[in-house]
């Protein structure tokens, strides 16, 4: 065909890069949305976080050399973007009081909780049902505890790395992790007692 200018090398390369990016988006957007929604407890905000994340990824991709760790790199970016939105949002919210920490008497002896109650009498939950309950109970934890638990115990991010992401020192991360687990344990106790977990 006449009139059509010959595509030069740089155009072709740019087109290839865009195609590669398109592929990268489609291959990864699913888990990124899921992760952002888990952190933000909100599907719409998760979309914003993922959009911001991909904008950063696109900018950084050119200079990103460690292809083997591409997914880890993207994971950190989306976590960061989600955390940023969470922080912005949280200024409006009061931190709930966490009353789930165990009690000890004057001798440092554990005071055992009395009768845990559970609203539904349903038994023999399916694995899917118990997973949903666990997920819901995690979602109800105070943000400060919830985020540490999600990153460490679900996403498998190291304590040091969680500290970096949240700008906290490691001992603080560890204290929060323990408190988060204890708070979740208390919420799941009715299931545990009935052997559903």
């Amino acid at each position: 065909m006449k009139g059509q200018p010959p595509t030069d090398q740089s155009d072709k390369q740019a087109a290839q890069e865009e195609e590669g990016f398109d592929r990268l988006v489609r291959d990864n957007i699913g888990w990124m949305l899921f992760l952002a929604a888990r952190i933000l407890n909100d599907g719409t905000k998760a979309e914003d976080a993922v959009q911001n994340a991909f904008s950063n990824i696109h900018k950084g991709l050119e200079n990103f050399e460690n292809r083997a760790n591409l997914k880890t790199w993207m994971h950190r970016i989306v976590v960061n973007e989600a955390l940023m939105l969470l922080r912005k949002d949280r200024q409006l919210k009061e931190l709930p009081i966490d009353d789930s920490y165990p009690l000890f008497d004057q001798n440092g002896c554990r005071v055992v909780d009395q009768a845990v109650t559970w609203e539904t009498a349903e038994m023999n939950l399916t694995a899917q049902q118990t997973r949903e309950i666990v997920r819901d109970e995690i979602a109800k934890l105070p943000d400060d505890l919830r985020i540490v638990l999600i990153l460490r115990d679900i996403e498998g991010v190291s304590t040091a790395e969680v500290g970096k992401l949240l700008e906290l020192n490691e001992p603080t991360v560890r204290v929060r992790l323990h408190r988060a687990r204890v708070a979740l344990k208390k919420r799941l106790e009715p299931l545990i007692v009935r052997g559903e977990l």
Partner: peptide
């Protein structure tokens, strides 16, 4: 038990395209 239940959520993290 709580840790195990939490860890069980780690491989469910995907939304179909």
């Amino acid at each position: 038990t709580t840790l195990t239940a939490t860890a069980a959520l780690s491989n469910e993290g995907d939304i179909a395209l």
